[in-house]
């Protein structure tokens, strides 16, 4: 497939990029690694006049850690850089795990953390070639007025399927968004709308420049459930961050479930079940049950809703068990 025609602008600084975007925001798409956008262009799902290529801005891929301020990851750091960074591996293992499970090595060498966080929502009905789509009626995302995946659906239910997002939510991470008007910091947990056509709150004139993770984040794990070990997007991704109070009593816990629903879900009720209690098989079973009621999974072409719902429970139990082991205290699954 050929790419559609566009002009590619390489800014030298973030300011220059913002100025370009302020002028051309309606006809521009931002490109970093391009592993998601180039496919969208080939499939004619987006037809911008301009690409704003952030690759030419130096220092946008820096990763730095400070004991007080925490971790700062430049938006252009590749997923491979994030997965292998020794400090991230040691202090934020769930983020390292999530980055290391994205797609395949070739994609991780090019795809960026900023791109993963700002990844377009996905749906098996819409993420198809132009030819495939031309044989079917247009869904919401293609400008139609009906969802052909969720029967009677009143909106687009495309899914945020990024692996790093659940991990970042449990790490209390945020993103820095910069525009000509200034900059703002938005928590990753508040970044997603749950509406398929406009999946995140990043404005057309804003550039995601950094991902920020506090130093005080709890350690945790990320578990990806997908049909194949490589290449596939997750059917469900579960991240858990945990701290234990002596023995195996849960002091604090954060749980996020991605890819099952249009926006990632923070499972606060399941967290409440676990908090302050000693971990046991019964408690994990209860938390898993509660979590399934917090998530309303969207059907996948190969995975019915009931299966996804059951897997939320199973994966949550596995993830809390693994997070427990990660703490090096206690020994129960």
């Amino acid at each position: 497939m050929r790419l559609p025609k566009f002009e590619c602008f390489y800014p030298k600084t973030v300011d220059e990029a913002c100025a370009f975007l302020a002028e051309h925001k309606d006809q521009t798409r931002i490109i970093a690694g391009g592993t998601d956008l180039v496919v969208a262009l080939k499939q004619r799902r987006t037809l911008p006049q301009h690409l704003l290529n952030l690759k030419s801005i130096p220092d946008l891929s820096l990763i730095s850690y400070d004991q007080k301020t925490g971790l700062s990851i430049g938006a252009l750091a590749t997923l491979d850089d994030v997965a292998r960074n020794p400090e991230i591996k040691k202090l934020y293992p769930s983020l390292s795990q999530a980055a290391s499970r994205v797609a395949a090595p070739q994609i991780r060498n090019k795809g960026t953390i900023g791109g993963n966080v700002a990844l377009d929502s996905r749906c098996w009905y819409y993420n198809q070639s132009e030819f495939w789509r031309s044989t079917r009626p247009a869904c919401f995302k293609a400008g139609g007025d009906c969802c052909y995946v969720v029967k009677g659906g009143k909106q687009c239910y495309s899914l945020i399927s990024a692996d790093t997002v659940p991990a970042l939510i449990t790490l209390d991470a945020s993103v820095e968004l910069v525009s000509k008007a200034g900059s703002r910091v938005v928590a990753v947990e508040k970044l997603y709308t749950g509406i398929g056509q406009t999946p995140n709150v990043i404005k057309a004139d804003e550039i995601l420049t950094r991902v920020l993770v506090p130093a005080s984040s709890l350690k945790g794990v990320y578990i990806k459930h997908a049909y194949r070990g490589a290449i596939d997007f997750p059917l469900i991704g579960v991240a858990v961050s945990l701290s234990l109070n002596g023995g195996n009593t849960v002091e604090d816990v954060r749980i996020a479930i991605g890819a099952a629903t249009p926006a990632p879900v923070r499972a606060v009720k399941a967290e409440a079940v676990l908090k302050g209690k000693a971990l046991s098989d019964e408690l994990l079973a209860e938390a898993g049950q509660v979590a399934t009621k917090e998530v309303t999974p969207i059907v996948h072409i190969f995975a019915p809703v009931a299966y996804k719902r059951k897997m939320v429970e199973v994966l949550l139990k596995r993830a809390v068990g693994a997070a427990n082991r990660e703490q090096g205290i206690g020994s129960r699954e």
């Binding site: 590619c8 390489y10 490109i31 391009g34 592993t35 180039v38 496919v39 690409l51 290529n53 690759k55 491979d80 090595p105 070739q106 994609i107 060498n109 090019k110």
Partner: peptide, 18 residues
Amino acid sequence: TVLVNGKPILSCLMLATD
């Protein structure tokens, strides 16, 4: 797959100007 600065990447997804 080709190697760019020693790392395998997918040339179908890379702009030549990159």
